[in-house]
């Protein structure tokens, strides 16, 4: 009896490539939704640039798992493996900044560690970590400015950090195909985010970092309500006009 098990390394690489690629793709699309709506032109340009960096990462990561366009435009919601944090709606500007702060801090730690390893992600990580450093810095500067700003800005930033807190635990769950355990990034993440929020006159929110019903969630293909609407918009053109080009 022969057993044709797929080479474990390749299959695991696909799992991780989809997860990290979907994180980048979905967050890129969310940031792109600010186009035409950002509070000031400079900020619109900044968010678009960050979205473009993430899209570049997504293209490389998804290409490691299959055809980038098919994966981006033809998968159903349950096939996406991004963490729920990145699919959360933009909300007000403070929500977007809180999401950026939580995610880019995680992504910076993750890529930095991956860049030092020997996995198939090392090359991309070494390149992208330098870009993400700018994303993280952008989020940090705004978190300080809003948290240490007017009463309204402070309150909105506090509310945003609290609202997104329950989505932050998922980033540190184990992920097949990485040569590291994301749980090992968590102490540094808490210290970094806690330090920034402290300087912003805020504190790390309290409460659980995963909801009971979200256990494993995004990485298992379980997503929150707004994600379906986001995908519908993102995939509509390609699905309506297959093979359309500019």
């Amino acid at each position: 009896m022969t057993r044709q098990a797929p080479a474990p390394t390749a299959a695991h690489t696909t799992t991780a490539a989809l997860a990290l690629g979907d994180d980048a793709l979905v967050l890129s699309h969310r940031l792109g939704e600010w186009m035409g709506h950002a509070p000031v032109l400079e900020e619109e340009v900044a968010l678009a640039n960050i979205a473009l960096d993430l899209l570049g990462q997504a293209r490389i990561l998804l290409s490691m798992a299959g055809d980038e366009d098919d994966l981006a435009y033809l998968r159903e919601e349950r096939a996406f493996r991004n963490v729920q944090l990145v699919e959360q709606p933009n909300g007000d500007f403070a929500h977007t900044i809180a999401r950026q702060l939580y995610f880019s801090t995680y992504q910076h730690l993750l890529y930095d560690r991956l860049a030092a390893g020997r996995s198939p992600f090392a090359g991309l990580a070494a390149k992208a970590v330098k870009e993400v450093a700018y994303h993280r810095d952008h989020a940090e500067q705004w978190a300080l400015r809003l948290g240490d700003g007017t009463d309204v800005a402070h309150e909105r930033m506090r509310r945003a950090c609290t609202a997104l807190w329950r989505f932050t635990g998922e980033m540190f769950r184990p992920l097949d195909g990485l040569d590291l355990d994301p749980a090992g990034l968590e102490p540094d993440w808490l210290e970094s985010v806690g330090g920034i929020l402290g300087r912003a006159g805020l504190a790390l929110p309290e409460g659980p970092r995963t909801g009971a019903w979200t256990a494993g969630a995004g990485r298992e293909g379980l997503h929150t309500e707004s994600f379906g609407r986001m995908l519908a918009e993102m995939q509509h053109l390609h699905r309506s006009h297959p093979g359309a080009t500019w």
Binding site: D112, A133, D188, S192, G195
Partner: peptide, 11 residues
């Protein structure tokens, strides 16, 4: 001055 976050690597 904000301290360069000691916790962020390679910075």
């Amino acid at each position: 001055p904000t301290q360069a976050s000691a916790q962020t690597p390679a910075e």
